[in-house]
């Protein structure tokens, strides 16, 4: 691995536009930062905010959602539904200490392989600037301060009701 920090972006791409755009970027041999891990969904409307929180909790430094341009959704308005969730979610995440740059919603049509590349590169650069989020470690260390008396086995033994 290179010495430089490579952020991890969990990317949710809709099947019809952005996933296809990512395919196109590949077919066009565009080179972009190796930061994304793509999870394919049929529509950006499928993206449950839980997925995004879970992604952060499991170690993503950023979450990128790619959907069809408004008006282009394969399912009429799934992307708009995604946008509604996204607007309030991003606001909420800021309150929870997650910088707005860490979560992006982009409309990338099937033909916009170039835009996909630009977005990923730009977001990767933003995340490099922000540094790692590293929530799994943080979540583990949250409980470092609490008392640990019994081992799990002991507790197990105790609570076993005859």
């Amino acid at each position: 691995m290179p010495d430089t920090y490579q952020p991890r972006i969990l990317a949710f791409f809709c099947n019809w536009c952005t996933y296809t755009a990512a395919d196109l970027a590949g077919v066009s041999r565009m080179k972009y930062a190796p930061t994304t891990r793509v999870v394919r969904v049929m529509c950006s409307g499928r993206i449950d905010p839980q997925f995004i929180l879970s992604a952060f909790a499991k170690g993503a430094d950023g979450v990128l959602i790619g959907g069809c341009h408004p008006g282009d959704c394969h399912y009429l308005e799934g992307n708009v539904k995604c946008l509604r969730r996204f607007r309030i979610l991003q606001r909420m995440l800021v309150d929870l200490g997650i910088e707005p740059e860490r979560i992006r919603l982009e409309w990338i049509s099937a033909s916009e392989g170039g835009k996909l590349k630009e977005v990923i590169n730009a977001m990767s650069a933003d995340l490099v600037r922000l540094g790692p989020l590293n929530l799994p470690d943080a979540l583990r260390s949250f409980d470092a301060e609490v008392l640990k008396e019994e081992t799990e086995a002991e507790v197990q033994e105790l609570v076993t009701i005859p």
Partner: peptide, 16 residues
């Protein structure tokens, strides 16, 4: 009990 549990940029608790 939420996925993030708290505002994430607060000081991390010190291990005892």
């Amino acid at each position: 009990k939420s996925l993030l549990r708290r505002k994430i940029d607060l000081p991390t608790p010190v291990a005892r």
